[in-house]
Amino acid sequence: MQIDFKSRELTVKLVYYGPALSGKTTNLQAIHSLVSPETTGRLMTLETRDDRTLFFDLLPLTFDGGAGIQVRFKLFTVPGQVIHNATRRLVLQGADGTAFIADSQISETRSNQQAFLNMQENLRENGIDPATHPIVIQFNKRDLPGVRTDEELERMAKKGREPVFKAVATRGTGVIETFLGLTERTWRQLEERHQLHEKFGLDPEVFLRGVRSRLGIPEAAA
């Protein structure tokens, strides 16, 4: 997180991580098209080859934090292909929260696991403790055949400590929920570490409610 006292501006970095082709870029595209232009700016796609991310995508979102503070979110995607590890590590630096986008197809189980372990390692390399880092997990591509059933997924989700979201990013389903889930987790940790409420008058409940209603989801999804 970056705080600029002079311009009363707070910048939060969220990273979309995951294996190649799991739909990270599609998540950002969906958010971009679902959120009103006053909240989001242009989606920047840095460099691609055959639609595969080479560096990163970047989507800015801006919210009024109240108390005269601008809260800027910067959403990044990493390149999922295994060979781009150096770039992934670079993009992950300074992340305040991470959404792990998994491919729901059972055949992708192994590459999901590998990407997750790779994220853990890269977090550490960037001096971030994976155990306390805000993480949410999205199972994307729920529309495809050969995926685990909802019941199976829920049973597995109970074992983990990260909130789990189901999505079809190409249709925009579950994408905002994932973003909100990540924002909530991240914000609670930022509050804990930086006392934003006390120091800046940024009430977490008020802020999160504001973000939810701006994104058209007035109440927290259960």
Partner: peptide
């Protein structure tokens, strides 16, 4: 567990 939903798949 950490990432159990994925790792313990």
């Amino acid at each position: 567990g950490f990432g159990a939903v994925l790792l313990a798949a």
